[in-house]
Simulated assay, not measured.
Amino acid sequence: MLPVLLTLLIVLLNLGGVASIVLELGHGERWPALNALVLLLVLDALGFWLLRRLREPG
């Protein structure tokens, strides 16, 4: 159950992050969009690492 919830959280995080980046670029704000992209990548890496740890046996 927990891996399914974590996967859903990662998907929703990516949707929100992409929307944020698109809206910031639409307003011509490049640095905040870059900051949002970096934060999104860091949170994705953390989420995938946690998901892999949950799926490992042992």
Rank of each mutant, 00 (worst) to 15 (best):
L13N: 14
V22N: 13
L12N: 09
R30P: 00
L25T: 06
S20A: 15
L43D: 02
L34K: 00
L12S: 10
G26Q: 08
L15V: 07
D44K: 01
L43P: 01
V22D: 10
G58M: 02
L8D: 14
T7E: 08
A45M: 11
A19N: 13
L43I: 06
L12Y: 05
V38F: 00
I21A: 13
I21S: 15
W49L: 07
L39G: 06
G26P: 13
N14V: 08
G16C: 10
R53K: 14
I10T: 04
V4P: 03
L25K: 02
M1C: 11
I21T: 15
M1N: 12
R55F: 04
L40Q: 07
G17P: 08
L6P: 06
I10R: 10
L43C: 06
L34W: 00
D44G: 09
L5W: 10
V18M: 13
L39I: 01
L34Y: 00
A45V: 11
L34C: 02
L41D: 00
I10C: 12
L41M: 07
T7G: 10
D44P: 03
G16A: 12
L9W: 05
L9A: 11
R55E: 06
F48T: 07
L40Y: 03
V18W: 14
N35S: 06
L8N: 12
V11H: 01
P57I: 07
D44A: 06
L5V: 12
R52A: 15
L43V: 08
L12M: 14
P32H: 09
S20N: 13
I10E: 09
E56V: 13
L6C: 02
L40H: 02
L5P: 05
R53H: 05
V42L: 02
L2N: 15
L34F: 01
G28A: 09
L23T: 10
H27F: 06
R55S: 11
G58A: 11
L51T: 13
V11Q: 04
P32Q: 11
G17H: 05
N14M: 03
R30S: 03
P3R: 09
L34H: 00
L6H: 08
H27G: 12
R53N: 05
F48N: 08
I10K: 09
L6I: 11
L34A: 06
E56H: 15
G16S: 12
R52H: 14
V22G: 07
I21G: 15
L23C: 07
G16W: 04
G26I: 01
E29F: 01
P32W: 04
G16F: 08
V18S: 15
E56C: 11
L2W: 10
V4A: 07
A36N: 01
L12W: 07
G47R: 08
G58D: 13
L15M: 06
V22I: 15
W49N: 05
L50S: 09
M1D: 14
L6T: 04
V11N: 01
L6R: 06
L54Q: 15
G26R: 05
T7V: 08
G16R: 07
S20I: 07
L54Y: 14
A36G: 00
E29G: 03
L25G: 04
L2H: 14
E56Y: 09
H27D: 09
V22Y: 12
R52Q: 15
V42T: 02
E56P: 12
L6M: 12
L8K: 15
S20W: 06
V11G: 00
H27R: 11
H27S: 14
L37Q: 07
L39T: 04
A33Q: 02
L40G: 03
W49H: 11
L50Y: 02
L9M: 04
